[in-house]
């Protein structure tokens, strides 16, 4: 399934945990500094409504005056848990792309505002850089440094797995629960 931004709430609410989907259109990188900035009441310099924020600190270099993405895999998302629910609401996001999953507050915000957590494959910086067709713009480059800036990427068929949906399901809490049971069994047997 290919979803093009801006993605409608209806499409997002039809998605379920475990689905592999592809995103085309606009995604915006944003990680620790950006989340903190927005949470503290700072302005977002670009309209992200209907698209996805991508937890990513890419390698981007300028070649002949043009920004070229050299590597762009996801960073660990859980660090944004204190801020994410508010950021989803404030920016009207339909997707949060990252790795490792997020917590209860974000899951609740996904349910309430119509957003999903899209898990990109961690470490797959080349596969994911390959689907960035253009760097549209960059914000906060000076202020936050390159990995922490907001990079506006045009993407084509960016591959993700839905691991948190609008129905209150999280693959991460399922796997954590199952593995905790298994851990207790194993520890009891040592």
């Amino acid at each position: 399934m290919i979803m093009t931004t801006p993605i409608s709430e209806e499409v997002i609410r039809s998605l379920h945990v475990g689905q592999v989907v592809e995103v085309s259109g606009s995604v915006f990188t944003g990680r620790d500094s950006v989340h903190r900035h927005l949470y503290d009441g700072g302005k977002c310099p670009v309209d992200m409504r209907g698209s996805a924020i991508y937890h990513c600190g890419p390698v981007v270099v300028k070649e002949n005056g043009v920004w070229v993405v050299k590597a762009a895999g996801p960073t660990t998302s859980i660090r944004e848990e204190p801020y994410q629910a508010d950021v989803i609401r404030m920016l009207g996001l339909r997707g949060v792309i990252g790795k490792g999953g997020m917590g209860k507050q974000t899951l609740e915000a996904c349910r309430e505002h119509g957003c999903v957590y899209m898990h990109a494959i961690g470490g797959a910086a080349q596969v994911l850089a390959d689907v960035v067709t253009e760097v549209k713009d960059v914000y906060f480059l000076e202020k936050f440094g390159s990995p922490e800036a907001i990079w506006h990427f045009a993407v084509e068929r960016f591959p993700v797995v839905i691991t948190m949906d609008t129905h209150g399901n999280s693959l991460h809490s399922d796997v954590e629960g199952d593995s905790q049971k298994k851990l207790q069994e194993l520890i009891a047997g040592i």
């Binding site: 390698v59 590597a71 895999g73 494959i121 961690g122 470490g123 797959a124 910086a125 596969v127 850089a129």
Partner: peptide
């Protein structure tokens, strides 16, 4: 599968396997 595709692509392009170097 994506991991393997990525390893091959990084080698071919001579670019970082992961952006977090």
């Amino acid at each position: 599968e994506v991991v393997h595709k990525n390893i091959a692509l990084a080698r071919e392009k001579s670019l970082p396997i992961c952006q977090d170097t």
